[in-house]
Nucleic acid binder design. Structure first.
Lengths: 334, 334
DNA sequence: CTGTTAGCGCCTTCAT
DNA sequence: ATGAAGGCGCTAACAG
């Protein structure tokens, strides 16, 4: 691999000059610029990114920490992340947080060691206060996705979870449903708590008693949605079902079908996320659209802004949007 | 951020010694080792990865180039990639190839500039010979996934596409089907060509004429599978349908359902990939299981092996495996 | 407009 | 067992 000095020799100039034409920093006579270009060409020279980063204190790199790579949700997030990084002229480094605060911390440290310009962390388990402290102590800007940290609203990207779940539940209530079951995500996750809160508040606002037996926990996967729905069917009767994830709704579809129950005639089903599959399920799934792309783009723009030392405004929570399709109807039995 | 010299001063030793305790290279008296550790501790020192890489010519980093992040296929791949990288003690850098040979080349170069120890490239469009040449010229080892490069079998990971498609088609033939339609992936992709070949060969082996009108192209997505199936339904009649992707099968399910056709009573459907959803579709989808995890693991192990300058054996193509579920049955009409 | 000179933070012989 | 010194390849003042 040719190095900068090789270029210097061949072009008959100093390293400073080569550096100048490389980075367009400072004036260079056109003729010498050409000479340098030629040398670069014939030597097939490419600057060493590590050396550049070490000397300039910028690596043009942004790190992304995720703990789940499967499923369209994170696929969409990842795709937008690569695009945003691209647009900002940054390299994206993706690392696994293993759904564990300790390992997420390790990941952050590795990224810092690699001198990332900024870090985007999608964490489900790290406590808010620990996250806030981490962000404050870190030598590079860190944006937390999937959080609303009111102490540092310019570092967090969140979805208005409570109102989104409220919206879906209320919609079912308006259709006359009173027995509304729920398949939640793992309840130890803040996201699940918030959605459950929205679900409960909507019911209570209508004077419908919340029965804990109507709530079953899944693990965000299709199989877990299937199992959770079977448990519910064995335990209680309901005319509507809210699933806190489209995947779990997919599993529920199967469980319902196996019981000979028809959607929405016998049971209305509401999902969450608006996964690409939702519109093609049979029947098409009504769900809450989550603007993942927009949120991801915002996260990266903010990260890049902070990395550049620019002003970075606080970011308001994003709103979910109801997408009504075929899986819900007015109540027909109760 | 504390640096190595800070540690030196505090511990009263030289950089060499600090380096030794850091990397466990060379002997150090136990007492001084402790002193160094303490200094590191109190200074909260973390070595600069860039500087380490620059000086040692190893970055403990492996690059992965992908052009698609959506869908469970790449989700699974990505998850395994992070795991494999982890196990090898490497950082994973994921970059977008944008489904374009030119941009894939850019991505490779950026990774080389960052001094990755090895690169794994999942390319769908770069011609074989260009790929081979690239691999030969590159200063770091590159493993091509989704390819069988017989010139360099130690650098390519492939699935036996032809036989997999053959297997599925033959199975349908054995059930008595003769009118077997096909929704293919974009035909300009080598993968699609190979699968089509398997499909055609199976039919011909049974003396069934291959009708081009029975073949429709999709784009690997649910919506495209839906559209392709609708076109087929408007054009020809068939008792079985082979989809070269489970996603497209999902779309086809919906199209079939809209026409009032039942699976498998009216039409048998065969998928490809064995996505997590396959077992939960209604009816559960019969498909070809592709060992993505195993292939990915192998790719990374090979990459790491090569990066370490070790022996790296040639890698035989992986085999698909039929997974039979509810979506196929003996022919009932024709 | 261009060259000189220090670093950036660490690794790595080679002495001692 | 430890230290001194010279890179790794590039950027960034500062002169000229």
């Amino acid at each position: 691999m040719a190095t900068m000095v090789d270029v210097c020799r061949l072009a008959g100039v100093s390293k400073a000059t080569v550096s100048r034409v490389l980075n367009n920093t400072g004036p260079v006579k056109e003729s010498t610029r050409q000479a340098v270009y030629e040398a670069i060409q014939t030597l097939n020279y490419r600057p060493n990114g590590l050396a550049q980063a070490l000397a300039s204190h910028r690596s043009d790199t942004v790190g992304l920490i995720l703990s789940n790579f499967t499923g369209s949700y994170f696929g969409t997030l990842l795709r937008q992340a690569t695009r945003s990084a691209d647009e900002a002229g940054k390299q994206l480094i993706v690392t696994d947080g293993h759904d564990d605060p300790k390992r997420e911390l390790d990941a952050v440290n590795m990224l810092v060691d690699r001198r990332c310009d900024a870090i985007v962390l999608y964490s489900r388990h790290m406590p808010d206060d620990q996250l806030v402290q981490l962000i404050r102590e870190l030598p590079v800007p860190l944006i937390a996705m999937n959080r609303y940290l009111q102490a540092i609203p310019d570092r967090s990207i969140a979805l208005a979870q409570v109102s989104a779940a409220h919206m879906a539940t209320e919609y079912l209530l308006n259709l006359g449903h009173r027995r509304i079951a729920c398949i939640t995500r793992p309840v130890h996750q803040p996201t699940a708590q918030a959605r459950l809160q929205g679900y409960r508040e909507a019911l209570l606002a209508r004077g419908v008693k919340v029965e804990e037996t109507m709530i079953e926990e899944g693990a965000n996967t299709i199989p877990s949605g299937y199992e959770a729905c079977k448990k519910l069917l064995d335990r209680v009767s309901f005319s509507a079902l809210v699933c806190f994830t489209d995947y779990m709704a997919e599993g529920a579809y199967r469980a319902l079908s196996e019981k000979g129950l028809r959607i929405p005639d016998d049971v209305s089903v509401f999902g969450f996320d608006d996964a690409p599959v939702a519109a093609y399920m049979v029947p098409a799934l009504s769900t809450i659209h989550v603007p993942i792309e927009e949120m991801t783009r915002t996260a990266f723009e903010q990260a890049v802004r902070l990395a550049a030392g620019k002003e970075a405004p606080p970011i308001a929570p994003f709103q979910g949007r109801m997408v009504l399709r075929e899986s819900v109807s007015v109540v027909r039995k109760n």
